[in-house]
Amino acid sequence: MQQAESIASRPIQHTSLKQRPLLKIAQRALFYVMMVVLALIFAGPLLWMLSTSFKTDPQVYTVPPTWFPNPFRLVNYPEALSSRPFGVYTYNTLRYALGAVAGALISNTLVAYGFARIRWPGRDIFFIICLSTMMIPFQVRMIPLYLTFKNLGWLNTYLPLIVPTFLGVNAYYTFLLRQFFLTIPSELSDAARVDGCTELGILIRIILPLAKPALAVIGLLQFMFAWDNYIGPLIYLNNESLYPIALGLQQFRTMFQEELMWPYMMAASTATVAPVIILYFFVQRTFVEGISITGLKG
């Protein structure tokens, strides 16, 4: 540091610094231009979706395209969403998504606590086995799982999408939570143990209140996964009254047939995207904080 300061205070460095402002401002401006262009490119597809969802049919076919629809056809939304039971799809998704979130939070918390906060012989071997399940592609388990659920009579129910989450099957969540639990000083648990607190008591009274950001991450990841999951419902559900949004959106598609009703299709897509994005904005700060802590500082 001292060396750096002494170099910075050399006269030559000073003059070059004095010449800089203009160059620096130009560099800065260029940087912001680049950021804005990149941001527009990345936001582009979503803006295009949003813009199309408010268009009239002729506006869809203008070349070059218009970004600001005029007239602004808000009624596309009720018209599109009422053509199929969008409300039912949403309700169905919520039904199993909330169950899966509860399952992931409860089971992965317990399992991660066992891996992070209790010393027991064989723990690390179990943990490595748990981690290595992350490498197993779903496809390997898919067929036997389907057949098992079929034999149990669980097809056309949400059980295949909920029950596994209660058994801590997602090792990624366990890993993230364990990493987070490890960052909590062990003195806190030791003190509680001396006071006669049970492990479950320590988990509930001491660890959980401190682990809110990590729990938010797991909750949001599991919710997003459930909202997004296509292949699971595709395999386990074949009754339209049970369809979640992922399958429902395809019903819209077959109905609106390509080319003909893009505004309706984009309105339905926006309605599918919106809940996830709104939810993200509510938990954004905790989420980013949680990912940073759990992901890397273990």
Binding site: D228, Y230, A246, R253, S269, V273, V276
Partner: peptide, 10 residues
């Protein structure tokens, strides 16, 4: 955050 099904349509 965009669900794959919506991403496909977009």
């Amino acid at each position: 955050l965009v669900p794959a099904v919506a991403s496909a349509e977009v």
